[in-house]
Amino acid sequence: MTAQPAAPERRRDPDGTRSEILEVAQQEFARHGYAGARVDEIAARMRTTKRMIYYYFGSKERLYVAVLEKAYAEVREMERAVQVEHLAPVEAIRTLAELAFDHHDLLRDFIKLVTIENVHQAEHIRTSQALTNLGTPVLDLIEAILEAGTASGDFVACLTQGADAIDVHMLISSFCFFRVANQHTFGALFGRDMSAPEHRARLRAMVGDMVVAYVRGSGA
C-alpha cells in the first residue's frame, strides 16, 4: 500500500499558521495603515493564498481587529510583569514611567497601529469584545501608587488637582507615543535623530521627571 504524503505543515499546525499570519499582518498594517495594507501582499510574504488567510479570519477587517487584539494583549502582558510595589511612591511612579518608555521603544508597531486606529476614530476597536474586556492592569498599579503617595504626602497634585490613574497613564503614554511616532518628522524638521542612543537615556529620564513633577504638584 502506498504511503500517503505528509500533510503540509500549515494544515498540521493551524495555531502556528494563525500566529504567522498575525505577525506578518501586523507588520503590513503598521507600515501601510488599514486602507493601504493589502491581503494579497500578506499572502505573498507568507507564500500562501489570500483564500487561506480568509479561511482563518474571514475578512480584511476581521484580520485587522485580530492584529489589534494581539498587539494590545502583548502590551497588557508587559504591564502585568511590572514590579514596583516594593518601592517608595516617588521612586515607584518614576520607575513605572521609565519602564513604560522602554516598552514603547520595543513596541513600535503597536504605536503605529494605535495611531492608525485613532485616524479611524477607534471604529475597529469598538467591534472587539476581547479589547473592551481586556482591562488595563497598569491603571490598578498606578492607582495603588497614587494612593500611597497621597497618604505619605508626596503627591500633592492628587489632593489639590484631582489627578487620577487615567491622567497619569495618559501623560506617560502621550510622551512615549509622541517620541516614537514623531521621530522621523522631528528629524526632518529639526535635524535631531530622536531614536539615537545618545538621546535615549535623557528622554527616558525626562519622562520619569515629568510624571513625578505632575503628581507632586506645584506645592512639592
Rank of each mutant, 00 (worst) to 15 (best):
T2F: 13
T2G: 11
A3D: 15
P5K: 13
A7Y: 09
A7T: 07
R11M: 07
R12S: 12
R12P: 04
P14G: 07
G16Q: 05
R18I: 03
S19A: 14
E20W: 06
I21P: 05
Q26N: 05
A30H: 02
G33R: 04
Y34I: 11
A35D: 14
R38W: 01
R38T: 04
V39H: 05
T49G: 11
T49Q: 13
M52C: 02
I53N: 03
F57N: 00
F57R: 07
G58C: 08
G58Q: 01
S59Q: 01
E61S: 07
Y64L: 03
V65C: 06
A66W: 10
V67H: 00
E69Y: 14
K70F: 08
K70L: 15
Y72E: 14
Y72T: 09
V75E: 14
V75P: 00
V75C: 07
E79M: 12
E79V: 07
E79K: 07
E79F: 14
R80I: 07
L87D: 00
E91L: 13
A92E: 02
D105T: 03
D105Y: 11
L106I: 04
L106G: 06
D109M: 01
D109A: 06
F110P: 00
L113D: 05
V114Y: 02
N118C: 08
N118P: 00
V119Y: 08
V119D: 10
H120A: 11
H120F: 10
Q121W: 03
A122Y: 02
E123T: 09
H124C: 06
H124S: 05
R126V: 03
T127A: 08
T127L: 10
L131I: 12
L131E: 03
T132A: 06
G135E: 01
P137R: 04
V138I: 15
L141A: 03
I142N: 07
A144M: 12
A148R: 15
A148W: 05
G149T: 10
T150W: 11
A151M: 12
S152V: 07
S152F: 06
S152D: 13
T160N: 11
Q161P: 01
Q161F: 12
Q161H: 12
D167G: 08
M170N: 15
L171C: 14
I172Q: 15
F177A: 06
F177I: 08
F177M: 03
R179L: 12
V180G: 02
N182K: 10
F186L: 08
F186P: 02
G187F: 01
A188D: 09
L189P: 01
F190I: 01
A196E: 09
E198Q: 13
H199F: 13
R200C: 03
R200L: 05
R202S: 13
A205M: 14
M206K: 08
V207L: 04
D209H: 06
D209C: 10
M210Q: 09
V212D: 08
R216L: 07
S218H: 12
G219F: 11
